[in-house]
């Protein structure tokens, strides 16, 4: 059963890896593998040697991702804290609104957000792209962090209060250290969202050297439906996945716990 699940989950990923590493002749007739090596790194060389290089897109996505994550946490932590301190009715209505926003399919906002980019001339600016991304990540981030704050025993802050720590000191010495696991898992989820976001990047970014990874991939795919360079495709998907694979493998615990903790109470 487990083997079957793994095959189902990972099979397509391995297919990509395989396709990216063989010559086009072998790709269409894998039987040739048996007859002798047809392995090649040509696909990767072509991608990385192209102008702009594929590495550029990875870098762009990393820039947007970091900007988004930083901005989201900066706004979400105070908001979650303030929210948790609200009276019951107020808190529940804000949380319901946040839940609604978290459920909302963000693709439906692309047109109006494009208008925003036009009006303030934010197109093709990677850091400016962090602004809508942070806005779209906020509902989930605030809900997750509020749950984490609600789970902290109130006596800890009270004890610090009695010891004479003012608000800023309590945040620095007590609140933030205790929240760090929740902060880590929230940060990863926000980064994942930003790394994977497609429709808004598609409409905000048009310059080739500013494309984020998903838009770059779709541009390669869009070149032609029929005579598609599948080897290059596969190499692109592998390169585009690797950073995420690393991230997920490194932070598996945070991701799983972040999602599972926040899921319901949020």
């Amino acid at each position: 059963m487990r083997a079957l699940v793994l095959l189902w989950s990972l099979g397509p990923l391995f297919l990509q890896l395989f396709s990216s590493l063989v010559t086009p002749e072998t790709l269409v007739d894998p039987g040739k593998i048996a007859g002798g090596g047809h392995w090649t790194l040509a696909n990767y060389r072509a991608l990385l040697g192209a102008s702009p290089s594929f590495g550029r897109y990875l870098l762009n996505s990393a820039v947007v991702g970091s900007g988004t994550t930083a901005l989201t946490l900066l706004l979400a932590v105070p908001c979650a804290y303030g929210l948790q301190r609200q009276r019951g009715a107020m808190r529940w209505s804000v949380m319901a609104a946040l839940l609604g926003a978290a459920l909302f399919p963000t693709v439906l906002l692309f047109l109006a957000l494009l208008g925003l980019a036009r009006r303030f001339d934010l197109g093709n600016d990677l850091l400016a792209l962090s602004l809508p991304y942070a806005g779209l990540s906020l509902p989930l981030a605030v809900l997750l962090l509020r749950t984490a704050i609600a789970d902290l025993p109130p006596e800890l802050e009270e004890a610090a209060q009695l010891e004479g720590l003012d608000f800023g000191e309590r945040v620095r010495h007590v609140l933030l250290p205790l929240l760090s696991p929740a902060l880590a898992s929230t940060a990863i989820l926000v980064f994942l969202f930003s790394w994977n976001e497609y429709p808004i990047a598609l409409t905000w970014i048009s310059r080739a050297d500013r494309l984020t990874l998903p838009t770059a991939i779709s541009r390669i795919a869009g070149s032609s439906v029929y005579a598609v360079p599948y080897g290059a495709f596969a190499a692109a998907t592998v390169l585009g996945s690797l950073p995420l694979l690393l991230l997920v493998l490194l932070f598996q615990r945070s991701i799983v716990s972040g999602l599972t903790q926040g899921a319901i109470k949020g």
Binding site: L6, L10, L13, N196, A221, A234
Partner: peptide
């Protein structure tokens, strides 16, 4: 723990990336 992480991978990857992969699988 590993099984959980590995099965989670498809969700973590960009949809566009995997859509491209499936396009080849369905070719």
């Amino acid at each position: 723990a590993w099984l959980r992480t590995l099965t989670l991978l498809p969700w973590a990857l960009p949809t566009t990336v995997m859509a491209l992969g499936w396009r080849w699988i369905y070719n």
